[in-house]
Design a binder for these strands. Sequence first.
DNA 1: TTTCAACCTGGAGCGCGCTCCAGGTCAAGA
DNA 2: TCTTGACCTGGAGCGCGCTCCAGGTTGAAA
Lengths: 119, 119
Amino acid sequence: MSGYSPSEAATRSGFSLDTLRYYEKIGLLSDIGRTSGGRRVFTDDDLGWLVLFRCLRDTGMPIAEMCRYAELARAGEHTAGERHALLRRHAERVEEQMRLLQRQYDHLREKIRFYEGSG
Amino acid sequence: MSGYSPSEAATRSGFSLDTLRYYEKIGLLSDIGRTSGGRRVFTDDDLGWLVLFRCLRDTGMPIAEMCRYAELARAGEHTAGERHALLRRHAERVEEQMRLLQRQYDHLREKIRFYEGSG
DNA sequence: TTTCAACCTGGAGCGCGCTCCAGGTCAAGA
DNA sequence: TCTTGACCTGGAGCGCGCTCCAGGTTGAAA
């Protein structure tokens, strides 16, 4: 509860200060609160968004698509279906990505075994 | 056995023609044969390297590190230990990457379930 | 009151991995 | 012989996602 300073938000989200500012600049984050002196104050809700963005970035979603998702969410409850579909499509891509990664990891292990066999 | 044209090599490796030329330019590929007219001819051995590069790139190895590996291989059999270690270190990073991807994929699925629960 | 680390803005710069382009050459088929 | 598409080289350009910088402000602790 209450608010978090930029550096707290950075620590908790795993994004750098510059990245947080960048995300606000491009409209991925919006309506981040300010103190009277102009400093950012992140809410628990903002932190929740950052956790989601961390998840989406780590799974390879382009920033443009995260912006799209955030826009839809801001537009209201009636976009829930579209948001759902967007996440499902992304999940499918992630599954493909995981299969590829596993396959190539297996190749890599085989290559490593080759070194061990002839060492 | 026999040789492959650039476009054949591209198709078989999944790299673009420009990428093949780029890899040769930076020294990742070396000693690619030429016809009398100056056109590239890829051997089965070259194709084998490309398969390895595909594996390493797909698992996130930076090009600089692939260059290092290729250099070691060119230097001779006495670098086998170092090449082995390099691949093992990479495999560990890939394992970490897979764990993260799985974790974030689980988060994503949970988020998707949330949409299905309240839909 | 002074200090100083954390913060602000706008905008330039960067590292990576290609990708594209201009202007020319080569070679196989009609 | 002519055409045409695949290929050549050197070098510029690009898209992404930050990252850094200059120059200034804020605010809590000493």
